[in-house]
Design a binder for these strands. Structure first.
Lengths: 191, 191
DNA sequence: CGCTCACGTTAGTGACCGTTCACGTCCCCT
DNA sequence: AGGGGACGTGAACGGTCACTAACGTGAGCG
C-alpha cells in the first residue's frame, strides 16, 4: 500500500508538470499549450480541470501553504519544549524543501501573479506558518522580541530554501544534515 | 561631493525604476510602457537607451554579478586568514542585500528570462563569486570538501538574501547584526 | 544661419497567448 | 439500447505587448 496513489489523476499530473515548468521559466514564461504538451494533451484541455491559468497557480500555491502550515501546527501540537519544537520544524521544512524544490521556487517567485483573493489567502497561511516559528523562537529565548524572531524565521527559510540553487549538483542525503545543522546554528546564534 | 552623482542620467533612472518594477511584478509582468511611465517618458523612448527589454535586464543582472564578484575578489585579495575573510564577505554581502533588496530579488528570479549569451555570462560571474566563498570555507576547515562548501555558500546566500521577505517591516540597522550573526553561525556550524 | 545628433512622441504591426466555441468520442448507468 | 456526462480536439477571437517607423524639437557648433 504505497503512500502515493498509483493512479495519478489528470489534475495531479497537470499540477506536477505545471510546477516544474513554472519553476524553470516562471508563470508568464509558460503557455497553456506548453503545460498541455507536458502532460500529453494539448492546449485548452486544461480548462476541463481548472477555471483558468491563474486558478491553476492558485491551487498550487494554496496547497503548498496549507501543507506547510498543517505540518507546522502538527509539530507544535505534539511538542511542548520550544527548542525541541524548533528541531522538529527544521527537520520538517528541510525535508519539504529538499524533496519539492520546484514548489519552493514557485511559491516565492510567483506569488505576485496570483489574483487578489488567492494571494491574500496564501499570504494569510504563510503568516500563520511564520507565527508558529516566531512563537517557538520567542519561547526558546532565541529572539529578543517578535520582530527579531520574524527576521530569524525568514532567514532560516531562506537558508533551507536554498536547495533549488545547490541541488541538482548535490544528493539530498548529503545536503540534508548540513542544512539542518546550519539552520539550527543560525537560529540559536547569539547576536 | 556626494558619493552618488547629483545628475542621474536617464539610463540610470531607467535601470533603477525597472529594477523596482521587475522586483515587484516580475520581468514579464512589467511592460515597456510601464517602465517608461515610471521615469516620466512614455513607451518606446527606452529604445534610445537600450537595444531591447531583454537587453535592459541583461545590463542589470550583469551589473549585479560584476559588483558582487568584484567585492568578493577585493576582500579575498586584502585578507589572508580565511576566517577573517569570511567575516568580510558576510559583511559585504549582507550590506548589499540590505541596501539593494530589489536587485537581489530580480537577480535570482529573472535569470531565466535572459537571452542565452547574457545568461551564460551571469552564470559564469556567479560561479566565480561562489568560488571565492568556497575557497575560503575550505581553507577555514568549515567544509569537508568543495561540494559541501558549495551547499554552505548557497545556504548562506539564501539566509542573507532573505531581506526582501522580512524587510519593509524591519529597519536595516536592526536586521544587519542579526543576519551577520546568523550567517556566521551557520557557516561555522559543525555537522 | 543651418547641419547634426540626442532624445522624444504617436501610430502602427505582427506575434503570442489566454480563453471560448462547436464539435467528436468513449464510458457508464438505467 | 440509448442518453448523458467526462474529457479531448482544432479553429477562431480579442487583447496585450515588444518593437519599428515616421516625424518633431531643441541644443551644440562650424
Amino acid at each position: 500500500m504505497p503512500s502515493v496513489p498509483v493512479t495519478t489523476s489528470r489534475r495531479e499530473q497537470i499540477l506536477v508538470e505545471a510546477a516544474r515548468l513554472f519553476a524553470r521559466h516562471g508563470f508568464h514564461g509558460v503557455s497553456i499549450d506548453g503545460i498541455g504538451a507536458a502532460v500529453g494533451v494539448s492546449g485548452p484541455a486544461l480548462y476541463r480541470h481548472f477555471p483558468s491559468k491563474e486558478g491553476l497557480l492558485a491551487e498550487m500555491l494554496v496547497g503548498i501553504s496549507e501543507h506547510l502550515l498543517a505540518g507546522g501546527q502538527e509539530r507544535a501540537a505534539e511538542t511542548t519544549d520550544p527548542v525541541e519544537l524548533l528541531e522538529a520544524l527544521i527537520a520538517f521544512h528541510t525535508d519539504f524543501a529538499l524533496h519539492q524544490p520546484e514548489l519552493i521556487t514557485v511559491q516565492d517567485r510567483d506569488l505576485a501573479n496570483l489574483p487578489d483573493a488567492a494571494r491574500h489567502r496564501v499570504r494569510g497561511l504563510q503568516r500563520a506558518y511564520v507565527e508558529v516559528w516566531v512563537d517557538a523562537l520567542c519561547r526558546a529565548g532565541f529572539a529578543a522580541n517578535e520582530e527579531a524572531a520574524r527576521v530569524r524565521a525568514h532567514a532560516a527559510f531562506g537558508l533551507m530554501n536554498s536547495t533549488p540553487r545547490s541541488a541538482g549538483h548535490t544528493r539530498p542525503d548529503v545536503a540534508a544534515p548540513l542544512l539542518v545543522a546550519m539552520a539550527r546554528a543560525a537560529l540559536h546564534a547569539r547576536v
